[in-house]
Design a protein around this nucleic acid. Sequence first.
DNA 1: ATCGGAAGAT
DNA 2: ATCTTCCGAT
Length: 411
Amino acid sequence: MRKPPEEAGPALSAVGGASCWPPRGPASFPLRPSSVPASLSFILCLPPQQCPFPARPSRGPRCPPGRPCTAAAWPRVPPPAQAATGSQIQLWHFILELLQKEEFRHVIAWQQGEYGEFVIKDPDEVARLWGHRKCKPQMNYDKLSRALRYYYNKRILHKTKGKRFTYKFNFSRLIVINYPLWEVRAPPAPHLLRGAPAPFWPALLPMGMPSELLHSLLLAQWAMVEHLAGQQTPRGLPEAAEDKMGSGSGAPRLGSLPAPFQPGPCCLLGSPQDEPPGLASFTPPLLPSLPASWTHLSGPLLPHVPPEWQFPGTSKPDTLLPGPGGPPVTRPFPGLPLLAGLGQGAGERLRLFSLRPQGLKVKACPMIGAQGRLDPREGFSSEIHRPKTGDKSPVSPQLGNFKAVWPLDPP
DNA sequence: ATCGGAAGAT
DNA sequence: ATCTTCCGAT
C-alpha cells in the first residue's frame, strides 16, 4: 500500500499529471520545424516541437488538489524547445536539451574541465522543467534523480562522486547506440587541405552541437572503425571496450526514437537487425535534411574541451591535420589529426567531416518505404559482430540515397 | 545528498 | 521499456 501524497491530494495523485493538461496526443504536440534545435534534433533525428503547455513558475500556485491544473498554474517560464514528443522524450535527451541551451545554463551546465560532466545547478528547476515536459506536475528532484540513477546500470550516465548534483554522460554509449553506422567522413586527402582556405573545408556539423557529443561521436566512430578493421580496441576508450553486460540481459538501449521518426526515411542510419555493420557498409549514410543553420563549429554553446583530451594513441596530435597553422576560424579539434591518420590507415572509405559547411550540399532521400531501426546491438562494442559474409544485402540500400557534394569534389 | 528496491503507470 | 512514486538505508 502506498501512502497518498500529502500535498497533492488524493484525486490529483490518482490522475497524476494527466488531468493537469490538455489531453495528450499527436494533435496536442504540433510540429514546429522552425524550432529545430539544430544540434540535437540532428543528432537524435527527432522532430522539432514546441511544448504546447505553459510552464509553471518555480514559486506559484499549486495545482489545486483534486482538480486539473489550469494554465494559470503554469505560466511564465518557457520550456526548452522540444525535440521529442512530450510523452516520449527520455530524460537523457531532455537533459541534453537543457545543456544545449544557453538560457538554461543557470539551471544546468556542462562542468568545465570534465568531459561529459554536467552540474545541475538548480535541481528543483530542472525537475520542474522535466515535470512540465512530461506532464508530471508532482515531479521533483528526488524522482528525477531516481530516473537518472536508472541510467547508471545502462551506462548512459554515472555519478561524479563527491560533487553534488554532478553527473557525467557516457557519450560513446549514447552515440554508438543511436548511430552505429554514422560515418565520419574526411576529405580524400586531408593533408591537401592543410593550407587550403577555410571556405574549402567541408563540414557537416550543426551549430551548437555539443562538442562532447561530437567528440564522442568521432571517438566512437573511430573506435568502431578500428574494431571493424580488426585492430585492437584502443586503451583510453573505456566505454568502448567495457561492454561487460555483454549479450542479452543488459544490452542497453537508449530508448527508441519517437515513433514517427524511428523508421523515418531520413533516419536510417543504423543497420537492420540482421545486417550488422561492417566496413562494407561504411558508405556515408550522411544526414537527414540539414538545418539551414548549419555552420562552422564554434560559438558560446560549445563546452570546454580539455586541451589534454585527445584521442588515444595519438602521440602527435598536430602532425596530420590543420593544426596550429590551420584556419583560425574553427576551434581546434583533437579528433581531427587522428581521424585524418585513420583515413589513411583504416581505408579510403573513412572520410572526415570537418568544420566548414560553406559550399557543402547534401541531398537527402526523398522517400524510402523500407522500415529500419537503430539497433544498439549492432553498434560498436567489444562484442561487435563482424560482417556476416554471405549476407544478402551488404549495404543498406537507403544509404545510396544520400549524397554529399564536396566543394572539392569533382562534379 | 545519494542509493537502489519495490511497485505502479503508460 | 522507461520512467514515476515512495521509501528505508547510508
